[in-house]
Each structure stands twice: as C-alpha cells, then as structure tokens.
C-alpha cells in the first residue's frame, strides 16, 4: 500500500486512488509497453518507470482524460526517453549485444500463449520486428489504433497532436510495416493479403 504517504493536501486519499487505478490498469499498460518495446523485461521496466512518473505528477492528472489514456501518454514519453538512453548505451558498449540477443531469443519463445489467434508465432514475431523497426511516433499511433482499437481522436489526445497528424502517422506506420513484412516474411504476409 502507498497509504504511508500523507500530507495536508490530501495526498493520503490520492495515493489510495492512484494505487487502485494502477492495479486496474497495469495489465493494459504492460500490453502496450510490450508492443512498443517488443521485449517483456523492457516492457516491465517501462511500465514501472511510467507509473513512478505518473505518481509523481498525479496532482496534474485531469480526469477528463481516461486514466488509461493518460498512462499511455506517460508510457510513450518514457519510451522515447528509454530509446534515447539505449541509443547512447549501444554506441558506447558493443559487448552487450550478445547477452541481449540471448534474452530476445528466450522471450520471443512464448509458445504457451493461448491460441485463439489468427497469426502463428513466427509471423507474429515478424510483425513485432516490423513494429520495432518503425519510427517511434508511427509505432505508437499504429499500436494504439490497430492493436488497442482506439479512435483517431483518442490517439490524438494521447499524443497531444491533431487528428490530421494521427491520420498521417498511422498511414505511414502501416506502409512501413507492409514494406517490412514484404521483405522479411513475404509468404506469410502474402497469405494474409490473399484472404481479402
């Protein structure tokens, strides 16, 4: 419990509220974080970091926006910071790539995921690979709209931009993903395209 926090501004109630919202939304947050990072341990770190930030700025949260949307926004910002930090690490130490590769291999093998799904594991890895390659802004827009099923307006609220910009990001993200799949998994992608 976070109820140990108490001060004159009613932080006591706020931390109880926050904890309830966090426990209600962490699964959804994790799912988006997983799609953004493509890795379960990165997703955990991202979710943790995002909720720590959210708690710090919870006094600024305006409940006109659904809490999950506010969290998506924080996750997106934290993710951009994570990419920047990782970019710096990568250029400074190359000897890390071996262990990272192992980890990615182990995590990619989630064959025990229940299978009501239309897509097999190896193709879904390709799709995730395509998401990972995408420009982060396109990726966020595509994940929110196509994976989470949000409307353009909701995505625009989360990304603090116009519906027109969202439309263009989603479109460009989809085109990037299509090109990636045509290059890396043409047969599987072709089978999906043929269904139409």
């Amino acid at each position: 419990m976070l109820s140990w926090v108490k001060n004159r501004n009613g932080t006591f109630d706020r931390s109880i509220t926050f904890e309830r919202l966090m426990r209600d939304s962490y699964r959804q947050a994790y799912s988006v974080a997983y799609r953004l990072t493509g890795d379960s341990s990165d997703a955990e770190d991202l979710v943790q970091e995002a909720f720590v930030r959210a708690f710090r700025f919870f006094h600024r949260y305006d409940d006109k926006l659904p809490f999950s949307s506010w969290m998506y926004r924080i996750i997106a910002n934290a993710h951009i910071d994570l990419i920047r930090r990782k970019g710096k690490i990568k250029t400074s130490s190359l000897d890390h790539s071996g262990s990272d590769g192992m980890q990615a291999f182990e995590i990619a093998d989630h064959s025990n995921v229940p299978g009501k799904d239309m897509i097999n594991d190896s193709f879904s890895e390709s799709v995730q690979g395509g998401l990972n390659q995408m420009n982060p802004e396109f990726r966020l827009a595509v994940v929110l709209a196509d994976v989470e099923g949000l409307s353009y307006e909701e995505v625009a609220d989360i990304m603090e931009t116009s519906v027109g910009t969202v439309r263009s990001r989603i479109h460009r993200g989809r085109v990037q993903l299509r090109n990636y799949l045509l290059k890396t998994a043409p047969e599987s992608y072709g089978r999906h395209a043929d269904v139409l």
Binding site: Y26, R27, A29, Y30, S31, Y34, R35, S40, A43, E44, V47, H110, V113, P114, G115, D117, M118, I119, D121, F123, S124, V127, Q128, V142, D146, V147, G149, R174, L177, R178, L181, Y189, H192, A193, V195, L196
Partner: peptide, 15 residues
C-alpha cells in the same frame, strides 16, 4: 491486410 495482421496479433504475454 496490414490492419488485419495487427488486429490478429496474439495477445502479449501476461504481465
């Protein structure tokens, strides 16, 4: 097709 592929993605591992 891209949209269908994304919508048909298996759920992510459980948190």
């Amino acid at each position: 097709s891209v949209q269908m592929v994304l919508r048909g993605l298996p759920s992510t591992p459980e948190a």
